[in-house]
Nucleic acid binder design. Structure first.
Length: 466
RNA sequence: GGUCCCUUCGUCUAGUGGCCUAGGACGCUGCCCUUUCACGGCGGAAACACGGGUUCGAGUCCCGUAGGGAUCACCA
């Protein structure tokens, strides 16, 4: 398939939500798979609702996801003159006409038609000759839709979908203030930008039939369409803010890795046999339009989490550390020292073992920083209550160790417990509480070793004297 | 309401008429490992929306019913 060109065309009225992110991903994947181009076009023809902040949010969301677009992002509004020119051309060719009805009149007629259960085509001026009374009035430009026959789209996802032309309305191309509508703008832009494949949400499927008519009126080739099903919330209803209708930046903040997000979004509505773990390079290799599912999919945080766990474990300890470093320093309030860094890298495998999201890693890693005095949870405080003397002598026991290694430490603690006729748990639990303050932590002996004798003793003594 | 689309375990899905006593993943769950938390290992429960056809044979094809969704702007 030569010269594939796809595009992602969001309207800048908010952040890049999860559905848009998936649409962008599919477009990107398809283009990369075919060695084609992936373009970004901002659909900002609605001046009132478009904001610069939203444009930035969309771009940064795509950056985070690693969806690089080719060339500069295009502003649809910037081509308004070209859109008007096309409308004029259609007018001259008799394929469009001037409609002098006001917005209010139109709304009224529409309501009536609906009451009578008739299709509203908006064609009240279609066959009326303009006369002296209309000459000075503002007008909208409408496309003359065919009245007979059918239009069928061979959608790459939905299959062949046919609609009666009689249900198509004479859509507005130019508003009465002379500005182009989205319907006109998309078609013109998609043609001008040489888009070969339009991959978008299936909320646009109905629009596609009308857009096809516009392509044909201009004598342009119609691109291939692929309308992908929408993403729903966990309850099967439309995504709301309560669910996952957050910006992708929110997912970044929650501590998901972009690679995990890509894998999740890819599998949400697309499949490749039984494969679940599909890194991006593999995805580019495999992606196609045919394997996109037809039904809407629900968003599921658990599955996203499990993918996130997988990709966190894929990262080398030092890589993971550098991705959380900023957050870690924010948490501890200090820059990372060399020893702290060494401890964290050493402990990383066990930290990651019990982490689902990046903040879990941050918390786990923070235990290996110099964070004295350790702040205690209520539970930890209760565990420590009355154990001061025991901790004191345990610390003394540990001070005697000259070879600070796990097996040596373990042996020391065991003999310490035995000598006092204490169960291991009775010794381990207070030590853990003193060292971690009650934060989730891994193997205690390993923690001691990595923390080092000095820091361990210091933390123990903090609680022993408390 | 009109038009269009969709319907396999709780969720994401495999399945393109016989390989399906329906497979995988997440989640749930039993056991094992673990003198701590988790990880891990081995198991388990769990679905073809319903009703008619077509066919030697249907999750797979057709029709109907039900349910869900999208859309019906001088928004995009």
């Amino acid at each position: 398939m030569p010269n594939v060109v796809t595009r992602f065309a969001p309207s800048p009225t908010g952040f890049l939500h999860i559905g848009g992110a998936r649409t962008a991903l599919y477009n990107w994947l398809f283009a990369r798979h075919h060695g084609g181009k992936f373009l970004l076009r901002i659909e900002d023809t609605d001046r009132a609702r478009s904001t610069e902040a939203a444009i930035e949010a969309i771009k940064s969301g795509m950056d985070w996801l690693g969806l690089e677009w080719d060339g500069d992002a295009v502003s649809q509004f910037g081509s308004a003159e070209r859109h008007r020119e096309v409308a004029r051309h259609l007018l001259d060719a008799g394929k469009a006409y001037k409609c002098y009805a006001t917005a209010e009149e139109t709304a009224e007629l529409r309501a009536k038609a609906r009451e009578k259960r008739e299709v509203f085509r908006g064609d009240m001026w279609r066959d009326v000759e303009p006369d002296a009374t209309t000459a000075s009035r503002p007008f909208a430009v409408r496309l003359k839709m065919p009245r007979t026959g059918t239009t069928t789209i061979n959608d790459r996802v939905q299959g062949a979908v046919t609609v009666d032309n009689s249900t198509l309305d004479d859509m507005i191309l130019l508003r009465s203030d002379g500005t182009p509508t989205y319907m006109l703008a998309v078609v013109v832009d998609d043609h001008d930008m040489g888009i070969t494949h339009i991959v978008r949400g299936d909320d646009h499927l109905n629009n596609a039939f009308r857009q096809v008519q516009l392509f044909e009126a201009m004598g342009w080739d119609t691109p291939e369409f692929a309308h992908i099903p929408l993403i729903h919330g966990p309850d099967g209803k439309k995504l709301s803010k309560r669910h996952g209708a957050l910006g992708v930046d929110a997912y970044a903040d929650m501590g998901f890795l972009p690679e995990a997000m890509r894998n999740y979004l890819l599998r949400l509505g697309w499949s490749h046999g039984d494969d679940e773990i599909i890194p991006t390079t593999q995805a580019i290799d495999w992606f196609n339009l045919e394997n996109i599912g037809k039904g809407p999919a629900r968003f599921d945080f658990d599955k996203l989490d499990s993918l996130n766990v997988h990709y966190m474990r894929q990262l080398a300890p030092s890589e993971l550390l550098s991705t959380i470093e900023n957050d870690l320093e924010k948490k501890t309030g200090n820059g990372l020292s060399g020893t702290e860094r060494d401890r964290i890298v050493k402990a990383m495998p066990s930290i990651v073992d019990r982490a689902k999201r990046l903040p879990d890693v941050v918390n786990g890693a923070s235990l290996f920083c110099n964070i004295r005095p350790v702040s205690l949870t209520e539970k930890a405080a209760a565990t420590l209550d009355g154990q001061q003397a025991m901790l004191e002598s345990a610390a003394t026991e540990l001070t005697a160790i000259t070879d600070w290694k796990q097996d040596v430490i373990k042996a020391a603690i065991m003999s310490f417990a035995q000598a006092r006729d204490l169960k291991m748990g009775k010794v381990m639990q207070p030590i853990r509480a003193a060292l971690t303050g009650g934060a989730p932590s891994g193997d205690l002996i390993e923690l001691l070793e990595i923390l080092g004798q000095k820091e361990t003793l210091a933390r123990l003594k903090d609680q022993a004297t408390a």
